[in-house]
Amino acid sequence: MTVGTRRRRASTLTGNYLLLLVLAVIFVGPFIVLVASSLKPATQDVFSFPPDLIPRPPVLDWFIRAWTVIDFPRYLLNSVIYVGVMVPAYLAVSALTAYPLARMRFRFRTVIFFLFLSTMFLPGELMLIPRFLVVSELGLADTYAGVMLPGLLSAIGIFLLRQTFAGVPQELDDAARIDGCKEWGVFWHVMLPAAKPALAVLAIFGFISVWNSFIWPLVVLKDTSKYPIALGISYLTGVTGTDVRSVAAGTVISLIPVLIFFIVMQRHILEGMKGAVKG
């Protein structure tokens, strides 16, 4: 390698890092403004020309206010409940439905599969009103169950797991049966472990979408004490009005759990996604 190419390499590398840095600022910058606003003391303006992002001194007053002015712990707990029940149930429903579609032969298999897939083309907007009416008719309006049940079935979950199960080598299946496994044993001891990466991806996106769920709970719930955290933040905006610092603080609190979860889990995503699009 000549000195010239090496120098050129070094300069493209610097250029790359500069470009990446600009992108990082675009994608993370707004959150930095948010965190700065939540920490600024009352004596310091939230908005100023030029923007002043250093809180002098940083205070936690607004976090305390956001935590107490609405029933913040309650909303956090609600979201934990929604995630804790919905994500495992969603995985279970998807896996149980996908398994026969991938590995058993029975009448109407293809028809059933395409029926499940067709739900992808029933937009949330179209389903919002009639689903609300159905949930009301079932007496589930304004209940936890009413929030949770309609979210447990998704075409993507069934599709992804069916692809994964279909790709499990037949030898593993046979070996388990020779060892005396019944259908359930094959499902539990062979298929589920083999589908771990796909299940991880579904769990991650399930967590994120339940934690951030907004429209459906907004429609179903009247009782604010059942609100998930995203609705709680919207409610906080209504309660505190122009107190932009408290809204910022509440928003920061709501972001922390989902961000931590994501950062811990993110290495599984690319792994699982590779399997998904391949099929």
């Binding site: 403004v33 934690w211 951030n212 995203a230 910022a248 928003t251 709501s254 989902v258």
Partner: peptide, 9 residues
């Protein structure tokens, strides 16, 4: 991040 949080941000 939720759309609500994005909106606030």
């Amino acid at each position: 991040v939720s759309m609500v949080a994005v909106a606030v941000t």
